[in-house]
Design a protein around this nucleic acid. Sequence first.
DNA 1: CGGGCCCTTGAGGTAGCTCAATCCCAGTGG
DNA 2: CCACTGGGATTGAGCTACCTCAAGGGCCCG
Lengths: 258, 258
Amino acid sequence: MRVLPPSRRAIVSTTVSALDQMIHKLSGRSALTGEDKEAILSLPHTIRSYHAATYVVREGEPPPNHCSFIRSGFAVRQKITAQGARQIMSLHLVGDFIDLEHLFLNIADHNVQALTELEVVAIDRRALESLVLARPNIARALWIDALVDASIYREWVTNVGRRAAPARIAHVLCEVALRMQAAGVSTNGGFELPLTQEQLADAVGLTPVHVNRTLKALVADGILHRDKRYISFTDWNRTKEVADFNALYLHLEQAKPA
Amino acid sequence: MRVLPPSRRAIVSTTVSALDQMIHKLSGRSALTGEDKEAILSLPHTIRSYHAATYVVREGEPPPNHCSFIRSGFAVRQKITAQGARQIMSLHLVGDFIDLEHLFLNIADHNVQALTELEVVAIDRRALESLVLARPNIARALWIDALVDASIYREWVTNVGRRAAPARIAHVLCEVALRMQAAGVSTNGGFELPLTQEQLADAVGLTPVHVNRTLKALVADGILHRDKRYISFTDWNRTKEVADFNALYLHLEQAKPA
DNA sequence: CGGGCCCTTGAGGTAGCTCAATCCCAGTGG
DNA sequence: CCACTGGGATTGAGCTACCTCAAGGGCCCG
């Protein structure tokens, strides 16, 4: 059973404050005072669920009156070309904010789509904005979050622009592996890739067919193991080398308070 | 004469406060009070010059004690792959901050390199940080700046991942044209592209040879005119169509105060 | 007038694409 | 319990956009 059935998750969500998750995430980025935490806990918010494949944000739309972060499930940011090609430009998992840009930009420039069943905590935008503008620690934490997102986009430009198919695919797998571990979604034994091969293709700028063949080649070369969508690496160093992967850009160390 | 000789620029820089430029840029993004402006004007800063091709920021380095924005000239962000391929992930011109990430991240994840003779205003990092954390209007303006940068990266992922060579190249040209106009660096008649074909290739994830041939094809198809590096478009709508260009992602409208 | 960048161009090669079956398997209805 | 169905995953065969290598050509600058 790869994805928890909706019911298993739904039970928890209403009792434990969803905002504790936010406090946990942010305090990993900047030390928060008791007041900061109280301020966060009193943020007006609701919990929203989306089915897999649903659009959470649509390109061209004005910002809704809330900003969301993921409580459970996976989402992607993507755009669709005039010729109908889709490009995924980032993956998001538990604890990630998926539309911080709505805080200050007045129109959505890309789509955000649920990859699996998805639960988000939707925080009142005005309230979050004043928190950010009034509380330095919270501001710093959210800045870091946004800056790390930007760093990941830069790496993806490089990945898609300058790496050959095997490295390109391996690189995304490395990133997912590390981020899932960091978020506590997987152990270091391996992880369940929340993407179909077609979606993976859209993330690396290749064709599904070619992704399939390249994955097979990576397995044949002993770079990775695969059981359906469950991925594990034989030799992390070797994989990193093939992927030309350097975790620097994820700024995981930055997760320590300043 | 394509690039102003260093002397022509150097004369001005010491007399007019360099920070006026910053005020001008930021007040385009968020209304600033008199106090905000005074606070900006009293920021400790120095002016630095770099020759073309010099590295301003190096991947892996800890942040310097200042953040810079461009006073004149052009710069790029880039990374170099293990196999030695370079990918440029953004272009920067007058008024752009080139290392806002140094404000909150503790290590540089990419290189910033001067493309032409470059002058930057280097602002004391601590001072800027406290300004950002203390002054909502300034914070908002810088947030918008960072979020727009991120939006541009997303578009570039799409560009490099999903568009064919002609569209890919035309797309970057459209972006440069609009941004240069918005910054007052060019009129809408055309513009001097501050990139060699090799650098353009590194920006679009292609080979210099192929960029050359594709440019020729774009000219042959009447999509653009070219005189050395001076580019102009015959029919903006047609160019936009070929480039699959939608200016939304530049958030130029956002330049109006909230 | 000799380098040293760039830009151009030719010729041939290949990584990744397209089109089109086929297969696998979980879920569904009977 | 079994046939049926639909969304992935795989595989084959042929094609092309873009690459590599390599040789000029133009122009600025000392």
